[in-house]
Simulated assay, not measured.
Amino acid sequence: MTTPDQSMTQEMRDAQGRVLVFDSGMGGLTVAREICQMAPALKVDYAADTGFFPYGDKSDEALRARLPDVAEALVREAQPDVFVIACNTASTLALDEVRARLDIPVVGTVPAIKPAASLTRTGVIGLLATPGTIRRAYTAKLIEDFASEITVILHGSVELVRLAEAFAAGEAYDGGGFTAALAPIFDAKDGGDVDTIVLACTHFPLVRAQLAAAAPDGVTFIDSGAAIARQTLRVLEGAAPQPRTGEAGGRLYITDEGGDHGRLVKVCGRFGFDRVCPPVLLPAKR
Rank of each mutant, 00 (worst) to 15 (best):
P4M: 13
P4H: 10
D5K: 15
M12A: 04
D14W: 08
G17W: 07
V19G: 03
G28C: 11
L29M: 05
V31R: 11
I35A: 13
A39G: 10
Y46W: 08
D49L: 03
D49F: 04
L63T: 13
R66I: 01
R66Q: 01
P68D: 02
A71R: 07
E72P: 01
R76A: 07
P80G: 04
D81A: 12
A86M: 09
A94N: 08
V98T: 09
R99G: 12
R101N: 08
I104M: 09
P105T: 07
T109C: 15
T109R: 08
S118R: 14
L119W: 11
T120F: 06
T122G: 10
G126M: 00
A129C: 10
G132H: 03
R135V: 08
R136A: 13
T139S: 14
K141G: 02
E144N: 15
E144W: 08
E149M: 01
V152F: 08
L154Q: 10
L154M: 04
G156L: 05
S157Q: 01
S157P: 02
E159Y: 01
L163T: 14
L163P: 09
E165K: 00
A166S: 10
Y173I: 02
G177K: 06
A181D: 05
L182E: 05
G191L: 13
D193C: 14
D195P: 07
T196L: 05
I197W: 10
A200N: 05
R208D: 09
L211I: 14
L211Y: 09
A215Q: 07
T220F: 02
F221A: 10
F221E: 06
I222D: 03
S224D: 12
A227W: 08
I228K: 02
L233C: 12
L233T: 10
R234V: 05
E237I: 03
P241A: 06
T245G: 15
G250N: 06
L252A: 11
I254C: 05
D256P: 13
D260N: 15
G262I: 01
R263N: 00
G269R: 01
R270W: 12
G272C: 00
F273L: 09
C277H: 09
P279S: 01
P279R: 00
P279W: 00
V280G: 04
V280L: 10
L281N: 01
K285R: 15
